[in-house]
Design a protein around this nucleic acid. Structure first.
Length: 443
RNA sequence: GUGGCUAUAGCUCAAUUGGUUAGAGCGGUUGAUUGUGGAUCAACAGGCUGAGGGUUCAAGUCCCUUUAGCCACCCCA
């Protein structure tokens, strides 16, 4: 065997997915895709590369430093790898005005690239899984997104989880209520955003350190940490801040979302309100949400909200949009952690391995493989010249559940023997019934 | 971008206060077993100890530089 001359290496922050892993990922992607279709979302694919000018100015200065540039020698266009799926959506909505009818529901599951420093659960290439409704201003649209995410998580086998709702307008209102003006407001967001990490006391300390008076901080904390049954939380905020117009708006929107969730028959246990939830400093303008799995080792597994200002950028008008993003990489991790993969998700696609004794039986083995495939059985033909024991060992190692044994005796009598490896069961059947026999053994 | 930790076989790790020829398990190949896998046993293959420099009679071990990986922060998914 030749010694490899080139050190096999991967670029920083990039991953390979070997077959065993890919099958698990594909399963999760498959469930998600099904639910997207169930909710009437259409697939969209956009190029990996965008014009640099398309991405510029959409993410802020810090983020733009993380955009991968892509050039080829002599290329005249300034190109970059897409940084997320939302800006490409906005471009598409602006570009195909005659082909796209609003409201436009689309989903996209694609990799994006960010030149960040890799860390646990953070990569330079990772999949995003976005669903958005462009051109729908009402809270029935927001509720559709939340309901979709609840359905995805339930179909994947999670029972205990909660989609927590908040509204950017309420966060702004809290600032107004506490007398924090525009400039300090993003500081306020930033501190509150750390709530799940540093707790109530941590946020309190940080707000005081940022120069807010202890009285103001207490007012804020009382609002955002309200500890009441879910259906009384909004009433409480209404009492406290109902006079503030922006608060009024935010509360009404959340009530509207809740009404629609009930109508959509979303299980009561799977959503709630969390007024400490901020969702970063990004472009959200209305209701926001985040899905948490209590016993999962990761933070939120999905999130999103309403962002009315971005999608219209490429069209010179406002297009109210709401959407969400499944943290598909994290979801895959938690599905693994909880062992929620169905039994048929094994380490291989192969359902049966056709073994080959020697050159004299090979023609029949090849023919059998063809017959099994014609009968819908995912079949691998053994391709090396090894003893039968090795061939079975190969199947076992690879996780193939059934091997076909076809020696001179079986050929002479027109039959084939199948062995199920997990319990050693052997059956002999006529060649014509081979495919059906494998399917029966698989059950 | 800031800070901390680590780097020895494909993988996970050993190697006494610096001391002869750097070991083991797993994985791989072959055999015990030329019509039956997992277990066991044996053999074989696999290393410039991340790279470069320094200290020393002697460096995997100590020092410096560099690269890479991991972790935390920032930010985010």
């Amino acid at each position: 065997m030749a010694k490899p001359k080139i050190e096999p290496r991967l670029p920083k922050g990039m991953r390979d997915f070997l077959p065993g892993d890919m099958l698990k990922r594909d399963y999760v992607f498959g469930v998600v895709r099904e639910v997207f279709h169930l909710y009437g979302f259409e697939p969209l694919q956009t190029p990996v590369l965008e014009l640099y000018e398309t991405l510029m100015g959409k993410y802020g200065e810090d983020a733009e430093k993380l955009i991968f540039r892509a050039q080829h020698p002599g290329g005249k266009e300034e190109l970059a790898l897409r940084y997320d799926l939302t800006v490409p959506l906005a471009r598409v909505v602006g570009q195909y005005q005659s082909d796209i009818t609003l409201p436009f529901r689309r989903y996209q599951m694609s990799p994006v690239w960010r030149g960040e420093r890799p860390q646990k659960g953070r990569y330079r290439e990772f999949y995003q899984c976005d669903m958005d409704i462009a051109g729908a201003a009402g809270q029935d649209a927001d509720a559709e997104i939340v309901a979709l995410i609840v359905t995805v998580l339930r179909r994947l086998g999670f029972a205990r989880f909660s989609v927590n709702l908040n509204n950017r307008k309420l966060l702004t209102a809290v600032g107004v209520y506490a007398g924090v003006d525009g400039a300090a407001l993003s500081e306020l967001y930033r501190s509150i955003d750390k709530f799940d990490k540093i707790g109530a006391d941590g946020v309190r300390d940080e707000l005081i350190r940022r120069g807010l008076s202890p009285e103001v901080v207490e007012k804020i904390m009382r609002l955002i940490t309200v500890d009441l049954p879910r259906d009384e939380k909004l009433d409480f905020l209404d009492e406290m801040m109902g006079e503030i117009p922006i608060a009024r708006e935010g509360i009404n929107e959340l009530r509207d979302v809740q009404t629609n969730l009930r109508r959509l028959n979303v299980p009561d246990d799977n959503y709630g309100f969390d007024f400490t939830m901020v969702r970063g400093l990004g472009y959200y303008t209305g209701p926001i949400f985040e899905a948490i799995i209590p016993d999962g080792d990761v933070g939120s597994v999905a999130g999103g909200g309403r962002y009315d200002d971005l999608v219209g950028l490429f069209r010179g008008e406002t297009i109210p949009t709401t959407g969400g993003s499944l943290g598909i990489e994290r979801i895959i991790d938690v599905v693994k952690q909880f062992g929620l993969f169905p039994d048929h998700i094994t380490g291989t696609v192969v359902q049966t391995l056709v073994t080959v004794f020697d050159d004299s039986t090979r023609p029949d083995a090849v023919a059998l493989a063809g017959e099994l495939r014609a009968g819908g059985v995912r079949t691998e033909l053994y391709l090396q010249d090894k003893p039968i024991g090795k061939q079975i060992g190969y199947a076992d190692k690879k996780g193939i559940l059934i091997v076909a044994v076809l020696g001179a005796d079986e050929i002479a009598s027109g039959v084939v023997k199948f062995k199920r490896l997990k319990d050693g069961t052997e059956i002999t059947v006529a060649r014509a019934e081979a495919a059906q026999a494998v399917k029966n053994l698989l059950v």
